[in-house]
């Protein structure tokens, strides 16, 4: 464990807790893409299949349980909670996210480190995580504005992946044989997807005005 990875995990934890808190407190999920949340639930489900078979540390298992629990809770709130579900703008959140999953699955079947059931699904979860934010970014473009909690959510999510890139660089220089191109490239693509959002987020923060994403 290094400080970059810890910072990344804490930022990631903060992002899901900020979102869960928002939805639980104000009983609204306006501006949040259910598609992205469903994709994240699938990412965690396919990423943590080994939670019962391989034990890394208490921290690792605890965090996996928190991420699984929070992502499925968010999906549950948005789909089934009597009050929250009414605030979900389903006609705006129309990104066909199943079309994201198929290419990720095909790519995982083609490019992976080992051709085993767990490894292919784990690789699938990496590719899917890289693109899972797309429905949310498309929704923000459509709704043209962003309330600050959703903005914080995306900002923290991007920050978590940015810290992980620093973690990979650190591990590359400190651990022999630590070379994982698939993880690195997927993580880099994911962070780049956030880059333009960060740019507009920073502009709005600098000019101290409401975040307006270009059409």
């Amino acid at each position: 464990m290094n400080i970059f990875r810890l910072a990344g995990d804490m930022t990631h934890l903060a992002s899901v807790l900020v979102l869960l808190l928002k939805i639980h407190t104000i009983k609204s999920c306006a501006g949040v893409s259910l598609k992205t949340q469903e994709l994240y639930a699938i990412v965690f489900a396919t990423r943590y299949l080994d939670i019962l078979t391989s034990f890394v540390s208490i921290y690792n298992t605890l965090m996996k349980l928190i991420f699984l629990g929070s992502s499925f809770s968010i999906v549950w709130y948005m789909k089934y909670h009597k009050t929250v579900r009414r605030t979900y703008d389903r006609d705006q959140d129309t990104f066909r996210h199943w079309f994201l999953m198929l290419p990720c699955l095909l790519l995982a079947l083609l490019i992976h480190e080992k051709f085993t059931f767990f490894e292919v699904l784990w690789t699938f979860s990496l590719y899917l995580e890289a693109v899972a934010i797309l429905p949310q970014l498309v929704l923000l473009q459509r709704t043209r504005n962003i309330d600050n909690l959703t903005g914080q959510y995306i900002f923290l999510l991007g920050g978590y992946r940015g810290f992980y890139i620093l973690n990979w660089i650190y591990r590359y220089f400190t651990e022999p044989h630590y070379v994982h191109w698939i993880t690195w490239i997927a993580g880099l693509v994911q962070t780049l997807l956030y880059a333009d959002f960060f740019y507009y987020y920073f502009l709005s923060w600098k000019n101290n005005k409401k975040l307006q994403l270009p059409a």
């Binding site: 990875r5 391989s54 965090m63 973690n167 651990e175 022999p176």
Partner: peptide, 10 residues
């Protein structure tokens, strides 16, 4: 030892 893995990462 066995090659390092990213499976210890979340």
């Amino acid at each position: 030892g066995e090659e390092s893995s990213t499976k210890d990462e979340l």
